[in-house]
């Protein structure tokens, strides 16, 4: 049992998040993929904090969690506003700013 397996899982989560970002059209589903990406990054930070016995990497993972909360809040507010004004939640159907 070595740390490279943890890193492997974190890479897999990251790549699944990238896959979700590229394939989903629904904005809320893209938000779910972003959460997956941020989680993979946090897991990576904790892995490296264990490899190098360094507590600062854990604080960075802590900041990542806090910023993910902000991102989810603002993203959902934007999606709610979008669904109210443009009557859609699909990211490529939002054309309010295209003139």
């Amino acid at each position: 049992m070595t740390l490279r397996w943890f890193l492997l899982v974190s890479h897999a989560l990251f790549c699944l998040g990238v896959f979700g970002m590229l394939t989903r059209r629904n904005a809320i589903a893209m938000l779910l993929s972003i959460e997956l990406l941020l989680n993979a990054a946090g897991l990576n930070f904790v892995c490296f904090s264990r490899i190098f016995s360094n507590a600062q990497a854990q604080t960075i993972a802590f900041f990542v969690i806090a910023l993910a909360a902000c991102e989810a809040v603002v993203g959902l507010a934007i999606i709610l506003s979008l669904s109210r004004h443009a009557k859609t939640v699909f990211a490529d159907e939002a054309k309010l700013l295209s003139g």
């Binding site: 943890f6 264990r50 854990q58 993972a61």
Partner: peptide, 18 residues
């Protein structure tokens, strides 16, 4: 995973916040 890696505080923060 956080628990396995010895980051207890982060594990519980993760469950609470996420």
């Amino acid at each position: 995973f956080f628990l396995l890696l010895g980051a207890e505080f982060l594990a519980f923060t993760q469950i609470l916040v996420y």
